[in-house]
Amino acid sequence: MTPEHRQGPARSEAARMAILEATARLFAERGFDGLTMEGVAAEAGVGKQTIYRWWSSRSALVAEGLAEGLIMPEWFVPADSGDLRADLTLWLQNVVDFIGRPGNDALLRSLVAASAQDASVAVGFSERLGVLQLLGDRMQRAVDTGDIDELPVEELVEAMLGAVVVRALRRGPVDDDFAARLVAMLLRAP
């Protein structure tokens, strides 16, 4: 995710990686709410102005860390047990559980806001993280093997992710059966 029209010196790859790795370490230790640009700068051994020159916000920084696979890399890959419903339900439940941890709902809202404010964040985050692609590929394999009927895969994946985002944005309750109900409803769709 290269920010658009940034001024100043060219981005040093070593500094960029130091910043992203520091972000990942601090995110793992403190969560999103405990992550500060000052803390990242100190951990990475760079000036805070260097971070702000390359990333407009804490959300944009975390988005790039996620997209680079430095923050929660295993979180985005759905299982392939041969049972699509079980795999999607498990994946979605993991997402719901993650968002339900203190501070992580703020991370999701912040990522949505960063994506809405900066097109390069949105495009880069979507393309490089590949959640839509990973889930779409998993669903397409189920269609190809005849486990499920032909479905509008892209739309179903977007609906699944959209339901989670809407719940997080409106801070609505998510009960224990939310993931299973949502997957069952979407896989029944014509």
Rank of each mutant, 00 (worst) to 15 (best):
R181C: 03
G65H: 03
V164K: 10
M37H: 05
L66S: 13
A60V: 14
M185T: 09
R128N: 07
D80A: 13
V143E: 04
F32Y: 10
V183A: 08
D80C: 06
A163R: 05
K48Y: 00
P102Y: 10
V112M: 12
L186E: 05
V166F: 06
P9I: 14
G39R: 06
E21T: 13
L135D: 00
A114E: 06
R11Q: 14
E4F: 04
M185D: 15
L35E: 05
D33C: 04
W75E: 01
L108D: 02
M17K: 10
I71N: 02
D176L: 06
T89F: 00
E154P: 05
R25H: 11
D105S: 12
Q49P: 07
E68D: 13
L84T: 03
E43P: 01
V77N: 07
S56C: 06
D87L: 00
A28T: 09
G100K: 08
L61G: 14
Q7W: 14
W91I: 06
V164S: 01
R16Q: 08
A60L: 07
M17V: 11
A44T: 02
I148L: 09
V121S: 03
A18H: 13
A142Y: 05
E158N: 11
I71K: 04
V123K: 08
G65C: 06
E21H: 12
R138N: 11
F125L: 07
D87K: 07
L84D: 08
G45L: 07
M185G: 08
R25S: 01
S12I: 11
A106P: 07
A119T: 13
G45E: 01
D175N: 03
V131T: 14
M37P: 00
A142D: 02
R188M: 09
M37D: 02
I71E: 03
G45A: 09
D118H: 01
E13W: 14
E127V: 11
A10P: 12
L182I: 07
L26H: 01
V46N: 02
I99A: 03
G39P: 09
L88A: 08
Q133I: 06
A184I: 05
M1N: 05
M37T: 10
G8P: 00
P9D: 13
D87Y: 02
W75D: 00
A116M: 09
P190D: 04
D176V: 08
A119S: 08
Y52H: 12
V165Y: 00
M160S: 11
P78V: 11
Q7A: 15
D83V: 15
